[in-house]
Nucleic acid binder design. Structure first.
Lengths: 223, 223
DNA sequence: GACTAAACGGACGATGCCTTCCACTTAGCC
DNA sequence: GGCTAAGTGGAAGGCATCGTCCGTTTAGTC
C-alpha cells in the first residue's frame, strides 16, 4: 500500500523505509539482507561487507546506500531472529505449565544460537545506540523474571535459581555453538539437557540428549 | 645446565633456544613473554603485536627476531599454562577418589579459562603444525578417558557421561569466560557448579556457587 | 518516447594490522 | 680498550577491510 499522495509529511531523512523505495531498490535490499543472513549464518559476523555485496550481486555502494554502516546491516539482518526469540518467550509465558514453558524457550533460543553462528555473535555483540534492540532486551528481561518466578512457585525450578542463570546458560551455549563446529547442534542439545536437568528442582525426569562426540583436538572453532 | 662445549652438534637453525641467547636478548625475551601474557589475559589474543612490543619496551623487530610469527608468540606465551593444565590432570589421576580428582581438574581448568581471556582463546584456537601442542592434547585425552572410567566405576559419575562432555564443559565455560566480562570468574564458578552437579550420579551434595548477577544487556563480551 | 531523480557499480582513499629491512648499538671475548 | 657478531628500533612494504565518490544506467511518470 503506497502512501497517500502528499497528505502525511515525508518521513525523517534517515532511513526512508523499505516501502518508499523504487521497485528495483527494494528487491536489491531484500537480496542484500538474504545474502547477509546466509553469510553470517555460515561464517559469523566477521564476513566482509564486500563479500556480502558480491553474494547479493550488487556493488558495495548499493549496500552502503541502504545500510550506512556495517553494524546497521547486521542489526537489520537479525531483527527477524530477535523477534522470533521474543515470540518464543511470549509463548512460554502463555503456557499453563511454567516449567515446560521455561524449558521450551531455553531450548528454542539455544537451538537458534547453535544453528546460526552469526546470530550468536550478533546476539552477544550489543550495539550501543540501537534503542529498539535495547528495548527488546528490557522486555525480555522482564518476561524472563516473571517466567522464572512462576516456575519456582510451581515447585519445578530449584529455589536457588537466579534469573541471571538464564544468561549464564546462553553464554555457555554460545561457547559451545561457537566452538563445536559441525557438531554444534548436537553439542548444544546435550549441554542444554545437562543444564535443564540441574536447573530442575528434584530428580531428573527423562534421558539426556546423546553426546556430541567432541574431541579435544577438534576444539578449534575460529582457527 | 649448559651444554657441554662443542660435543653435541649445534641445534637446527630454527629457534636457537633461550639458553644460547645473549644476556640482554634473554632478558628481552622474557619481558616480551611477560608483556604478551599480561596483554592477552586482559584483552584476548587479538592484541596487536606492536602493542605487546610497546608494552615490553622493545621494538617490533626484536619481538619478531625471537618469535618469527604472531602465532609462535602466542603458543610460547601459553606453554606454561598448558603445562599447568596437564599437571592438574596428573594430580587428578593420582587422587584416590576419582570423582574428587575429576571435579578438581574441571574446576581448575575452568578457573584458568575464566581468569585469563587470552588463554581461553589460545586454548581453543588450535595451531596446525604445532606438534608439541598436539602431543599434549593426545596425552590429555588419554588421561581424561582413564579418569572418567574410574569415576564411573566408583559410581560417582553418571553412567551416560561421555568423555566428550568434558570438552562440552570446556567450550561452555569458554563462552561464559568470554562473555561475562568482569563477572567471568563468578559466572564460571556458577556454571561449573551446575554442570558438576548434573554430571554426578545421584543427588546433589553441596550448595551451588552464588549467582553471577549477569544481565541480558551486559552480555556483550567483544563489542 | 522523453525526462528526471533515484539507484547503481567499481574505483578510490583511509585505516590498522602483520611482517621485513637496514643502519645503528652493544654485549662478550681477546 | 678494541673487535665482531648478535641484537636493536623504527620505518616501510604488503594486505585486507570499511566507507565514499562520481560517472553511468534505469525505473517511473507525463
Amino acid at each position: 500500500m503506497p502512501a497517500q499522495p502528499s497528505h502525511n509529511p515525508p518521513p525523517a531523512s534517515p532511513d526512508p523505509g523499505p516501502d518508499a523505495l523504487r521497485a528495483d531498490a527494494r528487491e536489491n535490499r531484500e537480496r542484500i539482507l538474504r545474502a547477509a543472513r546466509e553469510a553470517y549464518a555460515v561464517h559469523g559476523i566477521d564476513v566482509p561487507v564486500s563479500a556480502i555485496a558480491r553474494r547479493a550481486g550488487v556493488g558495495v555502494a548499493t549496500l552502503y546506500r541502504r545500510f550506512p554502516t556495517r553494524t546497521s546491516l547486521i542489526t537489520e539482518a537479525f531483527t527477524e531472529q530477535l523477534a522470533e526469540c521474543a515470540g518464543a518467550l511470549d509463548e512460554a509465558l502463555e503456557d499453563p505449565d511454567p516449567w515446560r514453558g521455561f524449558c521450551t524457550v531455553v531450548r528454542k533460543v539455544c537451538a537458534m544460537q547453535a544453528a546460526d553462528r552469526g546470530f550468536t555473535h550478533a546476539f552477544l555483540a550489543r550495539f550501543p545506540g540501537d534503542t529498539a534492540y535495547a528495548g527488546e532486551l528490557d522486555r525480555a528481561e522482564e518476561g524472563l523474571a516473571l517466567l522464572v518466578r512462576r516456575a519456582k512457585e510451581a515447585g519445578a525450578l530449584r529455589p536457588d535459581f537466579d534469573v541471571s542463570d538464564v544468561v549464564l546458560a546462553l553464554l555457555a551455549n554460545n561457547g559451545v555453538a561457537d566452538g563445536a563446529g559441525p557438531e554444534a547442534a548436537a553439542a548444544s542439545r546435550r549441554l542444554v539437557g545437562y543444564l535443564l536437568e540441574s536447573f530442575r528442582a528434584g530428580p531428573a525426569t527423562g534421558p539426556l540428549p546423546p553426546p556430541a562426540g567432541l574431541e579435544l583436538d577438534r576444539l578449534g572453532g575460529t582457527a
